[in-house]
Design a protein around this nucleic acid. Sequence first.
DNA 1: GGGATACTTCGCCATATGGCAAACCAACAA
DNA 2: TTGTTGGTTTGCCATATGGCGAAGTATCCC
Lengths: 115, 115
Amino acid sequence: MANQQPQLDRAFAALSDPTRRAVVARLCLGEASVSELAAPFRIGLPTFLKHIRVLEDSGLLETRKAGRVRVCALRPEALRQTDRWLSEHLRIWAARLDRMEAYIERRKQETRHDE
Amino acid sequence: MANQQPQLDRAFAALSDPTRRAVVARLCLGEASVSELAAPFRIGLPTFLKHIRVLEDSGLLETRKAGRVRVCALRPEALRQTDRWLSEHLRIWAARLDRMEAYIERRKQETRHDE
DNA sequence: GGGATACTTCGCCATATGGCAAACCAACAA
DNA sequence: TTGTTGGTTTGCCATATGGCGAAGTATCCC
């Protein structure tokens, strides 16, 4: 049973860390350099860099070097992919619930009919 | 900087594993016992149980014991919570993009005006 | 009771993750 | 050219994760 969705694995894993979610949230507002992104956190730069690499590997963001500064930008396609997985499964679940309710309603009707 | 959303952390982490996503997908179709859920996978039951515990701790599913069988059911609220985080941030990102496009459009108009 | 079934716990292992400090490199800025 | 800034690499550590097999417990069925 090989893993068919390593992309999805990595995106969900990347989003499981509050620091990384905060970075994604920040980048929704526009590009930023590594040190700008790191500023709100009390962790060392090497550690923070690791978070950036994880986000990059997951496809959630891309970076480019401008002089000595590394600029980070969101890649919303990866975000959309994870969102699609969730909303699709919620849809399936809701559809089943609807069928169940319809079934119960039908049973009620039939019971009334029997009386 | 304390973590404000351990729930969200755990839900995303739980969904980062293909086995666990498959379990969630299966449970969208209705309740199932541990061994029914484990059947499609080639991993041992103890290992599979760990996955179930992770899903349970994340709030994505709940279980109850019926005789010697443990029945698992989806808790869609946790699924919805993660979906909300994603769609909200996608919304913010899209809003910014709209503003940028509007800005560029305005610049175009002004440039034309200057000619 | 006694066997089969369905977990459940235990102990172990390899790898991954998230953190640190120290030293290093590259590119401005004076 | 020399210092400062912004990032990067390296090495280390503690804990978590995902896997295993063996043994244990609790039901259920005969």
